[in-house]
Amino acid sequence: MEQITLQNQYLKLSCINYGAIIKELIVKDKNENEVNVIIGFKKAEDYLNNPYYLGAAVGRFAGRIGNGGFTVEGNHYSIYNENGVHLHGGKNNFSHKYWKIEKVEKGENPYVTFSYLSEDMEEGYPGNLQAFVTYKLEKNKLTIRFEAVADCATIVNLTNHNYYNLNGGGSILQHELQLDADSFLETDEKQIATGKFLDVKGTPFDFISTRNVGDHSDFKGIDDCFVLNKKGHIATLHSKESGIEMKVSTNQPGVVIFTPDQLPEANYYNYYVDEYSSICFETQNFPDAPNKPHFPSAELKKGEKYINESEFEFSVR
């Protein structure tokens, strides 16, 4: 297991080649103190048992797929599932693989590029898929760029699974959130998308206007895909305690927001992991898109390039 550290004047990022995992992201708060704004383990070896996908690159398909599989170009493919649910690419998905370190660039805009070759029929997916992820620091901005190409038609939906806490620990219930999404996906009892779009108004998922994450009286946590109104800047998260603000931008049609009620006990880098310790912004296509013709297509044809690029810009106010 190899660790790469990137640093510029504003940010410091540490990642490992196992799962292409980001294990630390250091930002300075309003008092110039260094804060690790993601939940991560102190020891790199602890990521070998990482059921919550902390910091990981997730694929070949992020989110849930139902029906035991999907059809591409008239061919049906059965994929690994538990009780009819295929999650985050299967049992031995991308977050459990050692990625190759392709390039490390230091300097003013440092970056690292990892690659992973997912072979034909791995976890049931057709085609040899060559995937890349690049983590780049540009001033006060972290860019996460996924790319992929395949040698035959397949499906792909990659994302990063950082758990953010702008105080470096405690709870995110008092973090302010603004999210540019008027609707979210309805799910069934297995949390698989039904295909229906629900209005956020009057629900705990209404962040059109800025409010604290946990302010709604019916808040019981979030694990839902939001339908973004546009591409570009889609969300702003802010902590009054640290003063740190994070703006999220993406070229993807959706974002899965996840606020785990309780992470398992572990040797975390963060000073304290409370209930609702963090919030994920999994920028991606809609879950179960391969089985929902009216969702944005998740199909990647031979010769095409898949690109998922998201930016996380930090400041203090």
Score class of each variant (00 low, 15 high):
N128G: 10
P264M: 07
H175E: 11
T194H: 02
L173C: 12
K292F: 12
Y164W: 15
G202V: 11
Q262D: 12
A150Y: 00
T5I: 13
H161E: 09
N92T: 15
G232L: 09
T250D: 02
E186Q: 13
D274E: 12
G59N: 08
I38M: 07
T203Q: 03
G19C: 08
V273Y: 01
N109V: 05
F207I: 00
L177V: 00
A20N: 10
L300P: 00
V104W: 05
L177C: 06
H216G: 01
L137Y: 11
D261S: 14
R60I: 08
I65V: 12
S209T: 15
I39L: 12
Q3G: 07
K103Y: 09
A44Y: 12
T134E: 13
T259F: 09
F207M: 03
T194E: 04
E32T: 14
A131V: 13
E45H: 06
V133G: 06
L142I: 04
R64L: 09
I22W: 01
R317W: 12
G55Y: 02
L185E: 05
K302I: 11
L48N: 13
Y47P: 00
E138A: 13
P290H: 04
K136I: 09
N285E: 11
S183W: 04
E122P: 06
K12E: 15
E265I: 12
V35P: 09
N17H: 10
N93V: 10
K247G: 08
E138T: 15
I22L: 13
N33K: 14
T187M: 03
A298V: 11
C280N: 04
A193Y: 06
K103S: 10
K28D: 12
E138V: 15
C225Q: 08
I16N: 04
V72Y: 08
G124S: 09
D218I: 10
H96M: 14
N31G: 07
A20H: 07
V273H: 03
Y98D: 14
I16R: 02
P260T: 10
A193R: 08
A266R: 08
G55W: 04
V248F: 11
D218F: 09
Y268S: 01
E122L: 07
E119L: 13
D199K: 14
K301D: 05
Y276K: 08
A181G: 03
N251M: 06
A289D: 08
V200M: 03
I244G: 03
K190R: 13
Y276T: 05
E138D: 14
V58D: 05
D223S: 11
L237G: 00
I155F: 09
L177G: 01
D46P: 04
T210W: 05
Q178L: 11
Y47E: 02
V248N: 04
V255R: 00
L129R: 01
I257G: 00
I234R: 00
Q284C: 04
S315Y: 01
R64V: 05
P51V: 12
G74D: 10
Y164V: 08
I192K: 00
A44P: 10
G214V: 03
G19Y: 01
K103C: 10
K91V: 14
K231A: 12
H175R: 05
P290I: 07
F258G: 05
G55P: 09
P293C: 06
K28S: 13
F184K: 05
I172D: 09
Q284A: 08
